[in-house]
């Protein structure tokens, strides 16, 4: 009996101390890390995205029988918000913020003979997993420039194949294709430091940015890059909105 109660006391003390430490920790990181957020918009009418003809692979065609697939170079949502734009910091990051790639493992899925997501942003050295949800063979073939330190490779994924885990060494915009399904193309955008990708409304938020003055760059696969200056003050998020002109 006595033994039990002392055990309970120790246990509750441990729980208290631990949760206290957790809360404290959160406060510390909240004060030390800000963010940069904003919206990326398209100015002008969105260009027509061609439909994709998949009849050469009946599996793919069937998957899109009710909803035809379209190219995804420019995806515009509500209020002209531009999706799949990668935002990253090109100036001002302290070395400490660049030291380690995030532990989060990203997923690049082949689904209904399209890449999901179409644009995968990642930190150099961060692990990503290539998966296939399809009952058809794909070959996953990223095409970096080997002079950057990123080496091209080409692996098959027949139905039911295990995921392939990889990472890229150096910052680079890498096109990814499947030779078997020539319409399949996606992007691995490898950057150094924190990054974000715009959602369906063109909104983004780069987290874990310490206070300071930065240059933020927005990359869009068809329209190229734009850069602007932004300041993150302690406890106050920086804002940077971008507008790309429709072409």
């Amino acid at each position: 009996m006595r033994k039990e109660s002392s055990f309970a006391a120790v246990l509750s003390a441990v729980v208290l101390v631990c949760s206290g430490a957790l809360i404290l920790n959160q406060k510390v990181s909240a004060a030390g890390e800000g963010k940069i957020s904003g919206t990326v918009r398209l100015d002008g009418p969105a260009p027509h995205m061609k439909g994709i003809e998949m009849s050469k692979d009946p599996y793919c065609a069937k998957a899109h029988a009710n909803e035809p697939a379209h190219l995804e170079q420019v995806v515009v949502g509500s209020n002209g918000g531009l999706q799949n734009v990668v935002l990253y910091i090109t100036e001002g990051l302290p070395a400490s913020a660049l030291a380690e790639a995030p532990k989060e493992v990203l997923v690049f899925d082949q689904k209904n003979c399209m890449y999901t997501p179409h644009v995968l942003a990642m930190d150099a050295g961060q692990t990503f997993k290539v998966t296939s949800s399809d009952q058809t063979t794909h070959n996953i073939h990223p095409l970096p420039n080997p002079m950057t330190g990123n080496i091209p490779w080409n692996q098959s994924q027949p139905p039911g194949a295990a995921p392939i885990e990889k990472s890229w060494k150096a910052p680079e915009v890498i096109p990814v294709k499947c030779n078997i399904h020539p319409w399949m193309n996606g992007w691995h955008v490898v950057v150094k430091g924190p990054y974000a990708v715009t959602d369906g409304s063109g909104n983004y938020s780069i987290n874990n940015v310490p206070p300071g003055n930065y240059a933020v760059t927005a990359w869009q696969e068809l329209y190229g890059t734009q850069t602007q200056k932004v300041t993150v003050a302690a406890g106050k998020a920086g804002t940077a909105d971008f507008t790309f002109k429709a072409k």
Binding site: I140, P152, N154, Q155, S156, P158, A161, I164, I180
Partner: peptide, 14 residues
Amino acid sequence: TGLDGTPMPSFADN
């Protein structure tokens, strides 16, 4: 091993 530089992928995992 695949024929690098061409569409022929490696099937080593499969």
